[in-house]
Simulated scan of single mutants.
Amino acid sequence: MEIEKFIELVPSFGFPVVITFMLLKYLMDNIKEKFDTLDRTLKELIDLIKDKKTLP
Rank of each mutant, 00 (worst) to 15 (best):
F21Y: 13
D47L: 08
E8A: 15
P11Y: 02
T20Y: 09
K32Q: 10
I49G: 03
E8S: 14
F21I: 03
N30R: 12
Y26R: 05
E33S: 04
K43N: 04
T54P: 04
F6T: 01
V10S: 02
K25D: 12
D29I: 05
L42R: 09
L55Y: 03
T54M: 09
D47H: 09
P11M: 02
K34D: 10
K52S: 15
F6D: 08
L23E: 14
F15Y: 09
E8I: 10
L23I: 06
L27F: 15
P16E: 09
P56R: 01
T41M: 01
K53H: 03
G14A: 04
G14M: 02
D51G: 10
K34M: 01
I49N: 14
V10N: 00
K34V: 00
K50I: 09
D29F: 00
I49M: 12
D51F: 00
D51P: 09
E33V: 04
L42K: 10
E44I: 03
M1A: 15
F6S: 02
P11V: 04
D39P: 00
F6G: 03
V10L: 09
F6M: 10
M22Y: 08
M22T: 03
K52N: 14
E2D: 15
G14Q: 03
K5R: 15
L48C: 14
V18N: 08
K32E: 08
T37G: 07
I19G: 06
M1T: 15
P11R: 00
V10C: 01
T41Q: 06
L42Y: 09
L55V: 03
E33W: 06
L45M: 15
V17A: 12
F13W: 13
L38H: 01
L24S: 12
P16G: 07
F13P: 02
I46G: 08
M1S: 15
N30L: 08
T20W: 10
D51M: 08
K43F: 09
D36N: 11
I7W: 15
L42P: 01
M28I: 12
L38S: 06
L24R: 09
V17H: 05
E2W: 07
P11T: 01
P16K: 08
N30Q: 05
E44K: 11
G14S: 04
L55S: 02
M1D: 15
E2C: 12
T37H: 01
T41G: 00
K34C: 09
L48P: 12
D29R: 05
I31H: 04
E44H: 00
F13R: 03
E4Y: 07
L55H: 06
D47A: 14
T54A: 13
V10T: 10
L55E: 02
M22V: 10
I19V: 13
K25C: 02
P11G: 13
V18A: 03
M1P: 11
L9C: 11
L27D: 10
T37Y: 03
L27N: 10
D51H: 05
E44L: 06
R40Y: 08
K32A: 08
L42I: 13
G14K: 03
L27P: 04
K52V: 07
D29W: 00
D36C: 04
E8K: 15
L48W: 13
T37V: 01
T37I: 02
S12N: 06
F6I: 03
R40I: 00
L38R: 05
E2Q: 14
V18S: 02
I46V: 14
V10Y: 07
F15H: 07
K50H: 10
L23D: 11
M28F: 11
F35R: 03
E8V: 09
V17I: 11
E2Y: 11
T54Y: 00
E8P: 05
